[in-house]
Design a protein around this nucleic acid. Structure first.
Length: 506
RNA sequence: GCCCCCAUCGUCUAGCGGCCUAGGAUAUCAGGUUCUCAUCCUGAAGACACGGGUUCGAGUCCCGUUGGGGGUGCCA
């Protein structure tokens, strides 16, 4: 309803155009977010278009995964493969006839021509150029192959391409953040618009679709800046409108390298935890989409004041293309963790539970087997968590058998055995106290433990820590009374008894 | 190589010629709170890449240098 209110004619139309080669990258998510925000604030439409023109790079089920992660982020779309729309189909691989028709138009108007070189010939030329420490610049054949020659070659079974004839002038790109960017004619060459398998190249499909889908604003990574003159030239030749271009600064690792799959492979090879790169990685690592979105929204954009913590609604309210920066950014994971910590403390219990469930499901955590009551309690007991991974770590004790707890050697030594077994002795006291408790509630347990402290003039740590090590095997768990309530009286007592036997390690 | 883009604390950024002895966040360091971990609180330290201009006045405008990035595919 709200969207309708702000509806204006000639509304903004943006697109997400993922290529199905894997999961959704954080950089792609930032691009999607900015596009989405722009459309939503203008009451416009978001189109989801799958750019699958390169079959060789296609990854099975990639589309499903990308859409799923987009949904997890809370970004939706008005037209797309799953929801349909008036400008479909939304897979480029289903739009081949459209591209062929437009290639023909350019061929007819003389703005494109058949190019007869084979990939091998071009590769050889590139090799030569490289030896002369240069790069190949495609030289337009003179005279141009005629249409007859092209057709004859094709009839002959030869695989040939179609190239766009670049106009003989500089091209000026108007970018909302970079201003006017002039690319000298000498830098532009005739590029392929139709591959030798008859399919369109990215550039061509993109230009045709943006026109046919009525896209008004294109927000994309700065790596596309040098593609834009090609697009603009084609738009002119085809009589298409040129959308508003916004080239977003790029996002890198802290060391300035590219954030890519390679980082994961490298880390695994080195025996380290792979870093999160794709949206799905962050999801499985226990981040809230609210936090991730908030964090990446501030990469290359700022609301202009000291405000940082913003939800999607506020981002929609405050976003302006004019405040998008031009300088590349580095992805600071520490700051993301800090954002997540704040968000985790802020979202309500219901939302938190829902998000925890998603985390458990996606990450294959043992938490997935727990009931809502347990999870809700865990969430309360883990207040102050950084990510859901903290909840998982702190609740691991719940998911091991009582008799197969791995007692941390150091913990046993420091907390139980030290001071002539003071901790072990405490366990005996605890065993009887807890066994005789009227009921198994947090307050009662807390009171009982404090009573022990008072009567013996001890700090709570002297009681809670031995107990914690006894029932979890480690020194880290939720607050002790929560740990015990979660575990239940029976298992607690059993574990204390078992822990007593750690006195004389075999 | 050539073309294009960029340049404020370690990092994300505010700053759009005087309001800047440059603000916030995060990270770091030092204290404090706490039954563990985490959270939380207080404080400290920390930047206009360099060189020329323009101007009464420059972090803010111009040029150059250096540095970083992108592009240079029948990938997207």
């Amino acid at each position: 309803m709200k969207r309708k209110d702000r509806m204006s004619f000639g509304a903004v139309r943006v697109r997400f155009a993922p290529s199905p080669t894997g999961y959704l990258h954080v950089g792609g998510a930032r691009t999607a977010l900015f596009n989405w925000v722009l459309a939503r604030q203008a009451g416009g439409a978001v189109v989801l278009r799958v750019e699958d023109t390169d079959r060789s790079r296609h990854v099975e089920d990639s589309v499903g995964k990308i859409l799923d992660d987009l949904r997890w982020l809370g970004l939706d779309w008005d037209e797309g493969p799953d929801v349909g729309g008036d400008h479909g189909p939304y897979f480029q691989s289903h739009r081949l006839d459209l591209y062929t028709g437009h290639v023909q138009r350019l061929l007819d108007s003389g703005d494109a021509y058949y190019a007869l070189e084979t990939p091998e010939e071009l590769a050889a030329l590139r090799g030569d150029a490289k030896e002369r420490k240069g790069v190949l610049k495609y030289q337009r054949p003179d005279p141009l192959p005629t249409v007859e020659q092209g057709l004859a070659a094709r009839a002959d079974g030869r695989l040939i391409t179609v190239r766009f004839k670049m106009p003989e002038r500089d091209i000026v790109v108007h970018d909302e953040v970079l201003g006017e960017v002039r690319i000298p004619r000498e830098e532009l060459e005739d590029f392929v618009i139709q591959k030798n398998d008859g399919g369109p190249t990215y550039h061509f499909a993109c230009v045709v679709d943006d026109e046919l889908m009525n896209i008004t604003h294109v927000l994309r990574g700065q790596e596309h800046l040098m593609n834009t003159p090609k697009h603009v030239a084609m738009q002119e030749a085809l009589g298409f409108k040129t959308p508003v271009y916004v080239h977003l600064p790029l996002i890198f690792n802290m060391d300035g390298s590219k954030m890519g799959k390679r980082d994961k492979e490298k880390a695994i090879k080195a025996g380290l935890e792979p870093p999160e790169i794709d949206v799905h990685d962050f999801r499985a690592a226990g981040y809230l989409p609210e936090a991730l979105l908030n964090f990446i929204s501030l990469l290359g954009w700022s609301p202009g004041d000291d405000r940082e913590q913003m939800d999607l609604a506020e981002t929609i309210n405050r976003f302006t293309v004019s405040r998008v920066g031009a300088a590349n950014a580095k992805f600071d994971r520490d700051k993301l963790v800090a954002f997540n910590t704040d968000w985790a403390a802020r979202v309500d219990a219901e939302r938190s539970l829902e998000a925890l469930r998603d985390f458990a499901h996606v990450s294959g955590s043992p938490l997935a087997g727990a009931d809502d009551k347990t999870l809700a309690h865990l969430l309360r007991a883990c207040a102050g968590m950084r990510t859901f991974r903290d909840v998982e770590n702190k609740s691991a004790f719940l998911f091991v058998e009582d008799d197969s707890i791995a007692y941390d050697e150091k913990a046993v030594r420091k907390v139980l055995a030290k001071n002539e077994g003071a901790g072990f002795a405490m366990l005996d006291t605890l065993l009887s106290t807890l066994r005789d408790l009227d009921s198994w509630e947090a307050d009662l347990i807390d009171g009982a433990l404090k009573a022990i402290c008072e009567s013996r003039d001890l700090k709570l740590g002297a009681v809670a820590q031995p107990l914690r090590v006894a029932v979890t095997g480690t020194t880290v768990s939720p607050p002790i009374q929560d740990t015990l309530v979660l575990l239940g009286r029976e298992r607690t007592l059993k574990r204390i008894e078992i822990a007593g036997k750690q006195k004389a390690p075999a």
